[in-house]
Nucleic acid binder design. Structure first.
Lengths: 368, 368
DNA sequence: CTGAAAGCGCTTACAG
DNA sequence: CTGAAAGCGCTTACAG
């Protein structure tokens, strides 16, 4: 598109010029350009040739042919967390460099995404969109396929459903991240480790969960299903999840939360119940957003390069839009465990400690 | 533009018609349409009005304007805080309702905004953009005027410089908010109240500061310049600002921070120095973002309806784009003081308490 | 800063 | 089917 634009802009040839070159009058060229019928085929040929030669476009056409920079659409499932801000920052960052414009929308949780995907794809096509980046969305495989069917490049970041095979997905090394989190907790001496996950079907959640499970298994620690609670990547899930885990007969001494937002919820509920972190309960988050750093205590968290993920997704979409080959169907960026203040060895080998804590708090709980 | 487009298609109004209506010559209208500078502001107004009335678009514009929904550009100064997420959420929210698309860019702190405003305005015109929303930006009055000269509707949210008179600005009742914050602290018994503000020139900062000052003055409390520190709306400013305030011979017993981000920085630095909030230091933030609720202790904060501000800005831009009259040149939405855990009466009438705290921490400070 | 005049690029109406 | 002529809508160059 960039090339076409430049040619058109450079030439800015006139209709008269074309007429001269074709050896006809201006009105005749005008007729050809506007698709009038009353032109001899032979004449039309000559004019068409001249037209092509000087790269003429009518004033109206010019605008359409030279429509400025590429436009990429970015669809967020929701726009609530530090996670999305970071991803969007990365995208906008690279967009500025690449001279591309970014259209943002929120699909709003409903998998419908406002318009049906067919209509949306058609609209994107009509408006010459270069591609689509879908962030943590619940688009179904069928919906994403609709875009691909129309030839629109699509890249997904941390999708909630497995994407079709012709859609590039960008994410972090979630399995390795989950492993690092669990290893850290096991190394501190924890054995009863709860997992407060994201949406059960989400690829990234699955990977984090399996990283965590693989560590337990390799250390001969039983994986107890009741210690695994899936939910949304939101603080409410942390609050409810902690309550649930504390209600177990053997509550965990450590929790691996699949996002910082979830961890913040855990922190808040723990504080409300008088459970000290990390003395009574160790906590690891995931994402490594500013939330992790700002919380009290500062959150040990598996950081993922969210801005880089955004940049990477845009790079991949543009590459596809320009017909360049994909180097990978799945782009996976490294995670890193950042140890802060929310993790420590378990208080005592005696497992009754936590349950006593939680029991005692039942009485003194403020009636919120 | 749905309406305008339809009108334009129906009528296909000409420049001459606009000229007649505005009582000027065709060349003059041409100048306005093409953003030439040499038109008297008064004349420009008349032409702009006539233009809007007949829904005129230039031949080039017509092509671009016709297909698809309106596109509004949103330019953020930066995209770092919960504040921007909330504003953007409000904008996208209303965009979905209004059937409008939103193009997001980050101007990147530099007042240059990538392209010069003239070129950017021209490009927006070429691409048939319906309008521009500028969030907390450092665009100068001259830069914003460039957009208006091209007839592009512009709305600013919390600008860092005073906007030109033909630009609508959307904000909250900052003066009242500053007043509420200070009243609350004074009512608790505080007299030495520091102010950690935003950029000195920013309208919203000025208003918050003056609300604060008016309370002190009406209570016969001296306003000490050394207790007022301007800076950026970021946590770093809270950290540095607290250090500065603590270095005073009479350090404050309470701080009013002009944003939650700043307050979070204060909280972090206070914690590092072993200063307890609210026992040793009361703290009020501004914005009422999730940050305020999630921090420990939860932050007393003047909440502003950020999402509503976003919605309101978009509504106003679209109204202008459709040639409807403005109901107001300045939209001001209500703030509300939300009292949480970070404020309490001062520890003792004896003012030496805080300074002892800060002095003692000098020795035990971790060497970060 | 304004607009009469000239001009540009294109289209239309029509004579051939 | 073709193109000279007239015309349209807009812009430019410039005198006031």
């Amino acid at each position: 598109m960039a090339t076409a634009t430049r040619t058109a802009t450079k030439a800015k040839s006139t209709l008269a010029e074309v007429a001269r070159l074709a050896g006809v009058s201006a009105p005749t060229v005008s007729k050809v350009v506007n698709g009038r019928g009353d032109v001899a085929p032979e004449t039309r040929e000559k004019v068409l040739a001249a037209l092509a030669k000087v790269g003429y476009s009518s004033p109206g056409q010019r605008r359409v042919a030279a429509p400025g920079p590429d436009v990429v659409e970015v669809a967020f499932d929701a726009l609530t967390s530090a996670y999305t801000t970071d991803v969007l920052t990365g995208i906008l960052d690279y967009a500025a460099v690449a001279g591309v414009e970014v259209m943002v929308s929120v699909t709003g949780g409903t998998s419908g995404a406002g318009l049906g995907p067919e209509r949306r794809a058609q609209r994107m096509l009509d408006q010459g969109r270069a591609g689509l980046i879908v962030v943590t969305s619940a688009f179904s495989e069928a919906q994403l396929s609709a875009f691909r069917r129309h030839g629109i490049p699509v890249v997904v970041i941390d999708p909630q459903n497995p994407p079709p095979s012709d859609v590039v997905s960008v994410g972090a090394t979630n399995w390795a991240g989950g492993k690092a989190a669990a290893e850290h907790l096991v190394a501190l001496g924890h054995e009863r480790i709860g997992y407060l996950g994201g949406p059960e079907g989400a690829e990234c959640n699955q990977a984090r969960l399996h990283g965590y499970m693989s560590v337990l298994m390799s250390h001969g620690i039983a994986v107890k299903p009741e210690r695994i609670v899936h939910g949304k990547f939101r603080s409410e899930h942390g609050i409810e999840g902690l309550k649930r885990l504390l209600s177990l007969s053997e509550p965990p001494t450590a929790i691996f939360a699949a996002s910082d937002s979830i961890a913040v919820g855990v922190l808040r509920e723990a504080r409300r119940q008088g459970i000290r972190v990390p003395e009574d309960l160790s906590l690891v988050g995931f994402d490594g957003t500013a939330q992790a750093e700002d919380s009290v205590p500062a959150l040990t968290s598996v950081s993922q390069p969210l801005q880089e993920m955004g940049r990477s997704a845009l790079r991949s979409v543009l590459r596809q839009a320009h017909g360049e080959p994909l180097d990978s169907h799945r782009v996976e960026l490294a995670t890193e465990l950042v140890v802060r203040e929310s993790t420590a060895p378990p208080a005592a080998p005696d497992p009754s400690r936590i349950s006593r804590q939680s029991a005692s708090s039942d009485g003194s709980r403020p009636s919120t």
